[in-house]
Computed example of a mutant assay.
Amino acid sequence: MPESGRLPGHGTPAQVRADLAALAERGVTYVVFDTCLTAYLGLVPPERSPRHDPELLEAVAGDLMDLRRAEPA
């Protein structure tokens, strides 16, 4: 899916939308955005993990998903 060096679901909104579209083409019907994954993988210190970041949640809801249809925007 993503180009080398980028985790699926990470990157610009356009990159994440492309990831979601690729998953949908493979028949995936549910996706979980794990805001603690980067800390778990040791990519960022735990205190920098977004955990409950309202701005991040708004960006996902507004820029990546059409919540009325539950499909990528």
Rank of each mutant, 00 (worst) to 15 (best):
E55Y: 09
R17K: 09
L56Q: 09
D19N: 12
P45I: 08
V28T: 08
R17V: 02
P13F: 12
L57Q: 14
E47K: 13
T35F: 07
P54T: 02
V32K: 11
A21H: 14
G9H: 00
A22W: 11
H10P: 09
V32I: 13
L56G: 14
P50W: 13
T12E: 02
V28S: 00
P54A: 06
H52F: 15
V28A: 12
Q15K: 04
D34Y: 10
G11L: 09
L43P: 02
G27T: 04
V44F: 07
L37V: 08
V32C: 08
T29K: 15
L7G: 03
L20Y: 09
P50G: 08
L23A: 12
T29I: 05
L56D: 08
A22N: 11
T35Q: 06
G27V: 02
A39Q: 01
H10A: 01
L56I: 10
A18I: 01
L43T: 02
L37T: 06
L20M: 09
A22T: 05
L41N: 04
H52M: 13
A18C: 04
A14R: 09
P45F: 03
A24G: 15
D53Y: 06
G9W: 14
P54K: 11
A14W: 02
R48W: 14
P54N: 03
L43S: 06
P13R: 07
T29V: 13
E25V: 01
A39H: 03
Y30I: 13
P45S: 07
V28F: 02
R48E: 11
E25M: 04
C36N: 12
D53K: 01
V44S: 13
V31Y: 14
V16K: 00
L56K: 06
L20A: 10
V28C: 14
A22D: 05
D53H: 10
D19C: 02
Q15L: 01
E25H: 13
C36S: 09
P13I: 12
T12I: 00
T29Q: 15
R51T: 06
L41C: 10
G42P: 03
S49V: 00
A18R: 04
T38V: 01
L23V: 10
E47C: 00
A22V: 01
H10T: 04
T12P: 12
G27K: 03
A18E: 07
T29H: 02
L57C: 15
Y40R: 08
T35A: 05
P13S: 08
A24L: 03
L43W: 11
E25R: 15
S49F: 08
A14D: 00
L41T: 00
L7D: 03
A18N: 04
P50N: 05
G11F: 01
P13G: 06
R48I: 06
R48T: 14
P50T: 03
R26T: 07
R51S: 13
L57W: 12
G11K: 11
D19A: 04
P45E: 00
Q15D: 13
A24H: 12
V31F: 12
V31L: 04
L57T: 14
C36Q: 07
R48M: 14
A21E: 15
L37Y: 08
L23M: 15
D19G: 10
R51E: 02
T35K: 10
L37Q: 11
R51D: 07
V44W: 06
T38F: 13
L7K: 05
S49W: 09
L7T: 07
Y40F: 00
E25N: 12
L41D: 11
A18M: 09
E25A: 12
A22G: 11
L43G: 11
R26Q: 09
